[in-house]
């Protein structure tokens, strides 16, 4: 075996089983032919190019997320990523829709509803325009994720950049970036999400926009009690949703465990940085208490569902899912 062949075999060790056993020999042979390994000097001193490394890394990642030919365990991991992407982007899209609704209302674009008289205080600049476009794209992203379309991945990258770049540029306190960490989790999952079939009757998603819509109550006449203000915070809403979803999953019996529990664990854990960024706020009274309680509940949910989900995933065999 030439040194070059050894280097390619080491590179192909990145591939997960069972694909590695199935393809490594054949891929090594093909790489050596493509790279003209007949040249003895190249066979001695050559090594896989950066493009080769990126190519194998991309294949290894897609196989670990359940691409055709992957193991049963990898398929379950891919399902977890898809659930995180779908539930997370639907949550972000629900908030984005509320934001678009508020913007339309403030600018008097809603039929039958009068705009508030804000005089010169209603500002509109490039940052608002970018935010509005990103909000609209977030709604489209959620639809693509639910439908399992290939457009989900590039769109997720665009939304991720549209969310993170303006936030990083304009942030005043580093603590505020913790919120961006939370929203990055479902967007990264959507960017990695393997394309698949549309979700079949995804009724379990309905509570997400429903819970988000309680924020509309804050727009109604009369102020809600101060202790409820924490419940209008979308991050608190997301945390409480993961707690309820985790409880439902852990209490149900007779169904296979794994991806759903792990997805809830990831989403619950994802809310913790954004919740932590709200701990310093002490007004209105009771707000901080609600946020801290939500943080503890989300962390406990992440631990409980994560342990159950991981155990179920590890019990799956590393055999091809196609067989």
């Amino acid at each position: 075996m030439s040194p070059l062949e050894e280097r390619y075999r080491r590179l192909l060790a990145w591939l997960p089983e069972p694909a590695r056993s199935r393809w490594a020999d054949d891929m090594t042979e093909t790489y050596l032919q493509v790279e003209t390994a007949d040249d003895p000097e190249y066979a001695e001193f050559g090594s896989p190019s950066l493009t080769d490394r990126l190519d194998v890394a991309r294949l290894a990642l897609s196989l670990r997320l359940g691409a055709p030919g992957a193991s049963v365990r990898a398929v379950a991991t891919g399902q977890t990523v898809r659930l995180v992407a779908v539930a997370g982007t639907v949550a972000l899209a629900s908030q984005a829709l509320l934001g678009l609704f508020s913007t339309a209302w403030l600018h008097g674009r809603l039929p039958f509803i009068d705009a508030p008289d804000l005089g010169d205080r209603l500002l509109w600049g490039p940052a608002n325009a970018v935010h509005t476009v990103v909000s609209a794209l977030t709604v489209v992203l959620a639809v693509c994720a639910v439908r399992g379309l290939a457009a989900t991945r590039p769109l997720a990258v665009v939304v991720l950049i549209g969310q993170l770049v303006p936030a990083v540029v304009s942030v005043i306190r580093p603590l505020e970036l913790l919120f961006q960490l939370t929203i990055a989790v479902p967007l990264v999952a959507a960017a990695l999400m393997p394309p698949g079939r549309p979700m079949h009757r995804p009724l379990w998603l309905v509570p997400i926009p429903l819970v988000a819509s309680v924020s509309l109550a804050a727009l109604g006449p009369g102020e809600p009690p101060e202790w409820t203000w924490g419940l209008f915070d979308p991050v608190v809403q997301w945390a409480l949703l993961t707690v309820v979803a985790g409880a439902v999953l852990l209490l149900r019996r007779g169904r296979a465990r794994g991806p759903a529990e792990l997805a809830v664990a990831v989403l619950a854990l994802a809310t913790v940085p954004a919740l932590a960024s709200r701990w310093p706020y002490d007004t209105p009274p009771g707000y901080a208490t609600v946020v801290v309680l939500a943080t503890l509940a989300a962390a406990a949910t992440a631990v409980a569902t994560g342990a159950v989900g991981l155990r179920a995933l590890r019990a799956l065999p590393v055999v091809p899912a196609d067989h």
Binding site: A19, W23, V34, D55
Partner: peptide, 16 residues
Amino acid sequence: LRVGTLYGVLDRLVAE
């Protein structure tokens, strides 16, 4: 075609 791309496609076509 990159080699990794080829075997990704072949894996899918064999599975299908």
